[in-house]
């Protein structure tokens, strides 16, 4: 089972009917594939519109998503300038944002925009999104390519924002953050609590209701 599909499928269950949602580039863009047909969300694109949809038919060079890739507009879409776009984001008019992460720590701090000396792409809209959206979900693979933990006691990379993360969804687990820190709420099918502990460098509590991630929409079985 593809880790990205597992993550996207689980994140999709956080969508609520009527939500305005901003999806970051990468894995978050897969989320709409797994949203229940009864749940209708409006996708916001930071470059200036509401009502982003899949590309259907011809491309228009001036209709592109936040990654600069051609996309479509849903009937009823609205286009605006970047000042209004970020007023929507900072002003709490976006219900939910889903972004990738390099590191998240037990205080909900997020680092996802630069690796000093290696990768300095710039923060783009990420800092505004995680500061202003009503709810922030980090959708990322549980470990680095070298097997290192990404969920840490304290982030080591430059932060995107402090105390901003509400939910972490990986291919192994779901952590929710409350006022006391992180709570492990779900594990993926075939993953044990011990597996999660081995791959996680943060302190967290285990929910008494710890349960298996629901991956019905991709028909998941053994993942690891």
């Amino acid at each position: 089972m593809d880790a990205k599909a597992v993550i996207a499928c689980r994140v999709a269950q956080e969508m609520q009917d009527g939500f305005v949602v901003n999806l970051g580039i990468g894995t978050p863009t897969l989320v709409p594939n797994y949203v229940s047909p009864e749940v209708h969300v409006t996708l916001q694109s930071e470059n200036g519109f509401l009502g982003m949809g899949p590309l259907n038919g011809e491309t228009n060079a001036n209709i592109v998503n936040a990654g600069g890739q051609p996309c479509g507009l849903q009937p009823g879409a609205a286009i605006f300038d970047s000042a209004l776009s970020f007023a929507l984001i900072r002003g709490g008019h976006v219900d939910l944002t889903v972004l990738g992460g390099l590191e998240v720590d037990q205080d909900g701090n997020l680092a996802n925009w630069m690796v000093p000396g290696k990768m300095v792409p710039g923060m783009g809209g990420a800092m505004d999104l995680v500061t202003g959206a009503r709810r922030v979900i980090v959708a990322m693979e549980h470990c680095t390519r070298n097997g290192g933990a990404k969920i840490l006691e304290r982030c080591t990379l430059p932060l995107t924002a402090c105390h901003c993360v509400d939910l972490i969804v990986t291919e192994m687990a779901v952590f929710r953050r409350d006022e006391n820190g992180l709570v492990l709420e779900e594990v993926a099918p075939g993953v044990t609590e011990q597996d999660v502990r081995r791959c996680t460098a943060a302190s967290y509590r285990v929910a008494p209701t710890l349960r298996e991630m629901n991956l019905e929409r991709i028909g998941a079985r053994a993942i690891l």
């Binding site: 930071e46 970047s82 000042a83 776009s85 970020f86 984001i89 783009g124 202003g132």
Partner: peptide
């Protein structure tokens, strides 16, 4: 580097 929402508001 300036966050996008900050950059556009500065402008």
């Amino acid at each position: 580097l300036s966050p996008q929402g900050t950059l556009i508001e500065r402008i």
